[in-house]
Design a protein around this nucleic acid. Structure first.
Length: 317
DNA sequence: ACCCAGGTCTAGG
DNA sequence: CCTAGACATGGG
């Protein structure tokens, strides 16, 4: 395959990034067309479909190697096409020096050790729409299960893209969801969803198609406004809104508080919380603590400690 | 069987 | 304002 490359500086680890639980569609497609989440291919490349295009990525100390049938990518939140190299730099956030972010969040040994352990982890700039739908599926599901469901949805409702002898199922557009809403609601869809969840998702895609919800227009808007607009939708609560803000709308101060982050807050920072009104049950109180403590890149600190918690090594940090 | 998984909504105090 | 229970479902 024709592999091109761009400088990997400062160093980004695709392994640590794609396994961090922020994204669900990076893995490998095997010869039977099955998707294996969180594993790269035998040739060292990760398979992904982002912003509607197949993309294969590999990283070493010096370069990011890529392969894609696309030479340009449309980025809806920028409302413009980017050359594939510029797109990869945008997607991997290569415009913001990772080392500077790491330095700013290194407030204690826990984060410093987590950074050492997961060095090169970055927060991607995912497509807002796909991020919304992905996290609307996330409640009470494991990362692996979410990945399975999103793959299943893509096969059932989206287009497929042949590339390099593999089939890449593209995440369905909002129009795909509406067009095939009957099969989306159909119980034959292998990995089922709750009826309420389906209705909530269809409501979101409907207002996107009808132009009533300018999700991409939220890119660059103030944090609080983004949260306020997102939580108006049923099925999008405070935590999912923070995930969308952090993982797709460039709000690195967003700190999604899930079960892991609650545990982290209790175990590591309980003594720092001070006068806690309702302890870790108070979402605003806890996420404000993270922002006060870690600063403008608090979302990065959250992601590093979240990884450590998932891997069960929190207390060894 | 029981508990958990990147939560949210609703009803009822 | 607050809490308990429902929601769905495969894997440990």
């Amino acid at each position: 395959m024709a592999k091109k490359r761009i400088l990997n500086k400062p160093f980004i680890s695709l392994d640590n990034t794609f396994r961090s639980g922020q994204c669900f569609r990076w893995g490998r497609y095997d010869e039977f067309g099955n998707f294996v989440f969180g594993e790269k291919d035998t040739d060292g490349f990760w398979d992904g479909i982002v912003y509607g295009i197949p993309l294969r990525l590999m990283s070493d100390e010096k370069y990011i190697y890529f392969d894609s049938p696309a030479s340009e990518v449309y980025v809806p939140q920028l409302r413009q096409n980017l050359d594939i190299k510029d797109f990869i730099r945008f997607y991997l956030r290569m415009d913001t020096p990772l080392d500077q972010i790491y330095t700013e969040i290194s407030k204690d040994k826990y984060v410093r050790n987590a950074i050492k352990r997961y060095y090169g982890l970055t927060i991607l700039r995912q497509e807002p729409y796909e991020t919304v739908i992905s996290y609307m599926i996330s409640p009470q599901n494991s990362v692996e299960k979410i990945a399975q469901k999103l793959n299943e949805i893509s096969i059932s409702l989206g287009n497929s893209f042949s590339f390099g002898g593999k089939e890449f199922p593209v995440f369905p557009t909002p129009e795909d969801f509406l067009k095939k809403s009957e099969s989306f609601k159909d119980k034959s869809l292998k990995l089922r969803f709750g009826e309420r969840q389906k209705e909530n998702i269809l409501k979101v895609v409907k207002s996107l198609v009808e132009g009533k919800f300018d999700l991409n227009g939220l890119f660059g808007k103030p944090y609080q406004r983004i949260i306020n607009e997102l939580v108006q939708f049923k099925g999008i609560g405070r935590k999912i809104a923070d995930c969308v803000a952090l993982f797709s709308l460039d709000k690195l101060e967003a700190v999604p508080i899930d079960v892991h982050v609650k545990r982290i807050t209790e175990k590591l920072y309980g003594s720092l919380l001070g006068d806690k009104p309702r302890g870790v049950k108070d979402y605003e109180f806890v996420s404000n603590f993270w922002r006060d403590y870690f600063g403008r890149y608090a979302g990065f600190a959250q992601e590093f400690l979240y990884m450590a918690s998932r891997d069960g090594i929190l207390l060894t940090l």
